[in-house]
Simulated assay, not measured.
Amino acid sequence: MTSVHVTALDGVVHVNSLFTIAVFVGLSLAAPGQRSLHNSSTCEAGIDAPKKLLVFEVLSFSSFLFSSLVAQGLKLAINLLNSKDVHEAAKAHIDVRILRFGMLGSAFGSMMGCLFLMLSMVSVMEIRLGTLSCGSKSAVQAVAGMTILVTSALVVYTTTTVYAFLRTNFNMLDTKIP
């Protein structure tokens, strides 16, 4: 059962790494003086858009880093505790409460990171396509499409995470702490 948890934690760390790359790509777009592709100068994003972009990118990066570090910490604990008992390769002596809390914390960090990344992408779209308040058709379409897809993905991720969390029989793990 423990190897399944390690595999799940590996997946979280890998996905967070990909999202972290997206954060740095977004940060490269936060340069002052960026011009919109929109024809009207009234639709140009003000100085607040790059500021919001930076804030959301930092929050996104922090959330993904939090999630990855929690997942890596759990993996490290499982692997180190597992190395003490070579006869039971699939079990580690780990406190179930720590494992449950850590996995929920890691999932929460990933969800918050995705939310902040989506908000930063809204700022990128306003900088490059024109502000939403101006009614820039391209910006509204891009933000609407992204919001629908990302929100749907977050609902599926949250639902499956909660479902798996509630359905997992954590009693199968050996809860003795050496």
Rank of each mutant, 00 (worst) to 15 (best):
N79D: 11
M111V: 14
I127R: 04
N82M: 07
A90H: 11
L115A: 14
L149V: 15
V140A: 12
A164R: 12
C114W: 12
Q72E: 11
V150Q: 12
I148P: 00
M146P: 01
V143N: 03
F64I: 06
V155L: 15
S152W: 10
M121N: 04
H93C: 07
N169D: 15
L166G: 00
V124N: 09
V155P: 01
H93R: 13
Q141H: 11
S62E: 10
M125D: 12
L117K: 02
H93D: 10
V86H: 11
V156C: 10
I127K: 05
G130F: 04
K137Y: 08
A107D: 09
V58E: 05
G105E: 08
T158L: 15
F101Y: 11
F170I: 05
L65H: 08
S120V: 01
S110P: 00
V124C: 10
L80I: 07
L166Q: 11
F116A: 10
A92W: 02
S62P: 03
D95A: 13
V122W: 10
S120M: 03
F165R: 01
R97D: 13
L132G: 02
L99P: 01
T147I: 00
F116K: 03
L59T: 02
S120C: 01
M146S: 06
L65N: 09
L80C: 08
S62V: 04
F64W: 02
L74E: 11
Y157T: 12
L149H: 02
S67C: 11
N171A: 15
K84N: 10
S60C: 10
L69P: 00
A144C: 07
Y163Q: 08
K75F: 03
L99I: 08
V96N: 08
G130C: 06
L104W: 03
V155R: 04
V143T: 13
L117N: 08
L99M: 12
L81Y: 06
I78H: 06
E57M: 15
A142K: 03
V140T: 12
S83T: 12
L54A: 07
F61C: 09
C134H: 13
M121K: 00
F116E: 06
I78V: 09
T168L: 05
V124R: 10
V155N: 03
V124I: 12
E126G: 01
F56H: 14
T131L: 03
A90M: 07
H87S: 11
M121L: 08
R97N: 12
R167A: 15
T147C: 07
L54Y: 02
L166I: 14
I78K: 00
I127A: 04
R100L: 04
M118P: 00
L76C: 13
M125C: 13
F165L: 08
R100N: 06
T159C: 08
S133R: 11
N82H: 13
D95G: 06
S123Y: 02
D174W: 03
G135F: 03
S136D: 05
M112C: 14
